[in-house]
Amino acid sequence: MEHLSLPPGYLTTSMAALAAGRAPATIRDWVRRGILTRCGGTPKRPIYRVADVQAAATADKPNRPGQRAA
């Protein structure tokens, strides 16, 4: 269930995924890799700033050894 009363300019994980055109698992991976930071919420229901999600979507992603080029 989504938060119905988020402050303007903030997104849940699934909303951030829709805004970035990615899967929710990708948003969680960006957080784990340090590309995107949470700005509040709870551990199970984090929230993100819209500007941070947009910046992460266009940022250069670090490659891992052995990873195929996209």
Results as ranks from 00 to 15, higher is better:
L4R: 15
A70W: 06
V31P: 01
A59E: 01
G34V: 08
R28F: 09
G41C: 05
I27F: 00
N63S: 13
G41E: 06
A51Y: 07
K44T: 15
P43T: 13
I27T: 01
A20Q: 03
A17I: 00
S5Y: 15
I47G: 09
R64P: 06
Y48L: 06
A20R: 02
A51S: 09
R38Y: 10
A57F: 05
C39W: 05
L18C: 04
T12G: 08
G40E: 02
S14T: 14
L18K: 12
I47P: 03
C39H: 08
A23Q: 11
M15E: 12
Q67P: 07
R49Y: 05
A25D: 04
I35H: 07
A16G: 04
G21M: 03
L11E: 05
A70G: 08
R22Q: 11
V31C: 02
A17P: 02
D60H: 09
D52R: 06
G9C: 05
A55F: 00
W30C: 02
P43W: 11
P7G: 11
R45I: 10
H3G: 13
I27S: 04
K44C: 13
A20I: 00
P8R: 01
V31W: 08
A16E: 10
M1F: 15
C39V: 15
G66Y: 07
R68V: 02
N63C: 06
Y10V: 05
L11H: 02
I27M: 02
L11S: 08
K44N: 15
G40Y: 00
V31A: 10
P46C: 09
H3F: 15
L36N: 03
R22G: 02
A17S: 08
L18F: 07
D60V: 14
G21A: 08
V53T: 09
T12L: 03
G66F: 10
P65L: 09
P24I: 02
A17Q: 08
P8V: 09
R38P: 07
T37C: 14
R33H: 13
A25L: 03
D29Q: 14
S5E: 15
V53N: 06
L4Q: 15
T37Q: 15
G21Q: 10
R45M: 12
W30A: 02
P8I: 03
G40T: 05
A70R: 11
P62E: 08
L11M: 06
P65T: 03
A59T: 07
A69E: 00
P8M: 09
A16C: 04
A20F: 07
S5G: 11
D29N: 13
W30E: 06
P24C: 09
H3M: 14
D29L: 14
M1E: 15
S5F: 15
